[in-house]
Amino acid sequence: MDADSTENNNGAESINVNRVHIYVLLSILMYIYCDSNSVTHPNVQPNNQLVLSHTPNRSELWISVVESKFRPTIGTVFSSLEARIEFYGKLHYSPVHEHNIGDSSSTIETIKRRDKISRIGCRAYVRFSLLNGLEGPAILNNFSEVHNHHLTSVCYRDLETIWKSLDMFHKQLILDNSKLKIGSGKTFRQVKELVHRYQNIGATLVDFKNFQRYVKCYIRKRDADLFLDRLKKLKATQNQFYFAYDVGACNCLTRVFWADSTSIRNYSFLGDAVSLDPTYGTNKYDMVFTPFTGVNHHRKSVFFAACLLLHEDDESFKWTFQHFLNAMGQKETQFLITDQCPSIKKASPSVFKQARHHYCMWHITQKITYKVGSALSKDSDFLTRFNAVV
Rank of each mutant, 00 (worst) to 15 (best):
4 D>W: 07
6 T>K: 15
12 A>R: 12
15 I>P: 02
20 V>R: 14
23 Y>L: 14
26 L>G: 02
30 M>V: 12
31 Y>H: 11
32 I>Y: 08
32 I>S: 04
32 I>C: 05
33 Y>I: 13
34 C>S: 12
40 T>F: 13
47 N>E: 15
54 H>L: 13
57 N>G: 08
58 R>N: 11
60 E>M: 03
61 L>Y: 01
63 I>A: 03
70 F>A: 03
70 F>P: 00
76 T>M: 14
82 E>C: 08
86 E>R: 11
93 Y>I: 09
93 Y>W: 14
97 H>D: 04
100 N>F: 07
101 I>C: 12
107 T>F: 11
109 E>N: 09
111 I>G: 13
112 K>A: 09
113 R>K: 10
118 S>Y: 02
123 R>P: 01
124 A>V: 00
129 S>C: 07
133 G>Y: 15
139 I>N: 08
140 L>T: 00
144 S>M: 12
151 L>A: 02
153 S>F: 12
153 S>T: 13
154 V>I: 10
155 C>S: 12
155 C>Y: 12
156 Y>F: 10
158 D>Q: 03
158 D>N: 03
161 T>V: 13
163 W>C: 01
165 S>Y: 15
169 F>M: 12
173 L>G: 00
173 L>C: 09
177 N>P: 04
177 N>D: 15
180 L>Y: 06
181 K>E: 05
185 G>S: 11
192 K>T: 11
197 R>I: 10
200 N>C: 10
200 N>T: 05
202 G>V: 06
207 D>H: 07
208 F>P: 00
213 R>K: 15
220 R>A: 09
235 K>M: 06
237 T>D: 12
238 Q>V: 07
243 F>A: 03
243 F>P: 00
248 G>A: 08
249 A>T: 11
250 C>S: 11
254 T>C: 05
256 V>R: 03
256 V>S: 03
258 W>L: 01
259 A>H: 03
267 Y>I: 01
269 F>N: 02
269 F>W: 15
272 D>Y: 12
274 V>D: 00
278 P>M: 14
278 P>Q: 14
282 T>G: 02
287 M>W: 06
289 F>C: 13
297 H>N: 13
305 A>T: 06
306 A>H: 08
308 L>M: 09
313 D>Y: 08
314 D>N: 08
316 S>W: 01
322 Q>K: 09
323 H>S: 07
324 F>D: 00
327 A>N: 07
331 K>F: 14
334 Q>W: 12
334 Q>N: 11
335 F>T: 02
342 P>H: 04
346 K>Y: 05
347 A>M: 04
351 V>S: 07
351 V>Q: 04
354 Q>I: 15
354 Q>D: 11
355 A>H: 06
356 R>A: 12
357 H>Y: 05
361 M>D: 01
361 M>P: 01
364 I>F: 07
365 T>Q: 07
376 L>Y: 04
